[in-house]
Nucleic acid binder design. Structure first.
Lengths: 171, 171
DNA sequence: TGTAATTAGTTTATACGTCATCTATTTTGG
DNA sequence: CCAAAATAGATGACGTATAAACTAATTACA
């Protein structure tokens, strides 16, 4: 790729984020500004999600696991659960530990391959999830409210492009 | 291990993400899909940033603090640093501790208000940062490469709208 | 058959986000 | 001038991300 691109093509906006961060200098590139906006926006929204779930005694991570188990409808091997979350293998053990101690999942060793441990969701957890569904949907709507339906599609498209590219060039 | 999947009757509305997550049902709303895309994309990109910084012995959080201190050009009160990062007050202490132990910042108690502790960046840290600048910019460019300049602006605009709304309705 | 390689999962260690609580130092108000 | 409120920061506890090293069960292969 040529770095001879008209640099002025990419003059970053004198954005709101620059002011939020009390940055003295404008961003060096649109790429950097977009990156920082993504990070910043994510963390703001993440906090709201976590707070909502905390009212039900769950962390975002725990909620994700329960959602996966509910969606699947039957117990899954622990590593299969891990592969569907962000958390890598080692972290999953403690996560399942805490969920089990709270009575929301149960472990069950496979009879055919004794290395495998299945995790299943319990009825109380299903009940808990059903109570969370509506408030969480409401939160998502509330958060996305400033965006039109078209804007939401556009956002999804842009993010998908980034993710798609990233998974093709993991380095 | 059984892969007895019956073909799902529901017609997936759009998403690659749905497939990524092995979700059986499509998303319930654009808001939810956009939210999940944001979370997922962020975590993928975040990992790449962290890995790059790890090669220089820094975490993302530590790097942020050093960037702030370099940008400011003079020592800042600890709480001022905290206010410019995502991390709230309590977490900042340990962060500064570790940075200090590594020799990248130094603490200095204010003479006028003895409650205040200033944090300043050291010369070795400045040197370290200067070595990181280029690779990090390259990474940002690489990550944003699939987006045109116009798309980048659009992404920034959408994210700013979300953040702006969120900060007005912190709930 | 017996040993090496794989695979599933745990343990340990470091770093960070978040909350509640604590100390030390101003500042304020009667 | 002194007690109460406010402020700066530290501490401790819990949950999570991440990597490295480990155990135990299974499979591959010579």
């Amino acid at each position: 790729m040529s770095s001879n691109k008209k640099p002025d093509n990419s003059i970053p906006s004198a954005g709101k984020l620059q002011h939020e961060l009390k940055k003295k200098k404008p961003f060096e590139s649109l790429a950097q500004e977009a990156w920082l906006n993504l990070v910043r926006t994510h963390s703001q929204l993440q906090i709201r999600g976590e707070r909502m779930l905390a009212e039900f005694g769950l962390t975002g991570c725990q909620y994700n696991i329960l959602r996966i188990l509910r969606g699947e409808g039957h117990p899954l091997p622990i590593l299969e659960v891990a592969s569907r979350t962000i958390s890598p293998v080692p972290g999953i053990t403690g996560l399942i530990d805490r969920l089990e101690k709270a009575g929301w999942v149960c472990r069950e060793r496979s009879t055919t391959d004794r290395r495998v441990i299945y995790v299943g969701i319990t009825d109380p957890a299903l009940e808990l999830l059903s109570k969370i569904d509506q408030p969480l949907n409401d939160l998502h709507e509330e958060i996305m409210q400033p965006l039109s339906q078209g804007d939401r599609r556009e956002l999804i498209r842009l993010l998908e492009q980034l993710r798609c590219h990233a998974s093709e060039h993991p380095e």
